[in-house]
Design a protein around this nucleic acid. Sequence first.
DNA 1: AATGAAAGCACACTGGT
DNA 2: ACCAGTGTGCTTTCATT
Lengths: 150, 150
Amino acid sequence: MDAIDRLLVRLLEEDARRTYNELSAQVRLSANTVADRVRRLRAAGVIRGFRADLDPAALGRGLTMVSDVRLREDVDRTHFERELHRVPQVVSGARMTGEYDYQLRLACLGPAEFETVVDRLKREHGVRELRSRLVLHELDVSATGLLDLA
Amino acid sequence: MDAIDRLLVRLLEEDARRTYNELSAQVRLSANTVADRVRRLRAAGVIRGFRADLDPAALGRGLTMVSDVRLREDVDRTHFERELHRVPQVVSGARMTGEYDYQLRLACLGPAEFETVVDRLKREHGVRELRSRLVLHELDVSATGLLDLA
DNA sequence: AATGAAAGCACACTGGT
DNA sequence: ACCAGTGTGCTTTCATT
């Protein structure tokens, strides 16, 4: 994980579809060596994968809510986590310390859909309490931050 | 934005480096047409870009905190949002409704670094109050959700 | 919008320093 | 770890429907 690896990661973070050839020109190594390095970064788990970055709004999901969630005492967390992918509006989530057990991010068509999601989480997934707020807008914080101290 | 576009988006969401050739085999159109469709999806803003998905832990940032933030009355939100990228530990953020003004996600080396970030946000960025909790682990919710109703 | 043909590139191998 | 050469496969452009 030297300076060149960090540069490669940064370039792929900007545009994951850059060719090895293009990368090689930037880092002044052969395309071959670059491909090797990228494979190593993947194998090491630094790069988890390459994803298309989608705009929920452009897909009609203009309403994003962040919901803190507390589960009922009797529900199994592992089970909750496994079953959560059945609710398509849940776009991410994390277990957290603090007053609540999880924080979920919900991308919805509108308030009506959010309402059905709330009901569903309570009815089918053992959610006891739910504290939600609306995302007004996302900040773009140029994801290069992860590399500045790595 | 028909069913084929949705399938393409899903495939690129799984692996953004799939070739047009591979995609063409999946959707039973020519590679050419697939490339056209993907370009259109980009132009339409449905696909914002292609990103390498990095593991903060593998980069040494093993401590992720979620912090709700309230700004001092006198600070300009636009300015706050523009200057935030100077704090490399801030990996994402959003303006929100509710008791707090923003929610930030902070990827830190450890508690000591988090402490310096807290101080810096208060000293340099007009943060008045900060309510933080630790991310225990992220859930993986197979990001296909955005497409199931799109 | 979709297709096929063909030129130009990029990629994965192998082998070699 | 890095590089060069080679064959194969990919992307792109253009003409066509």
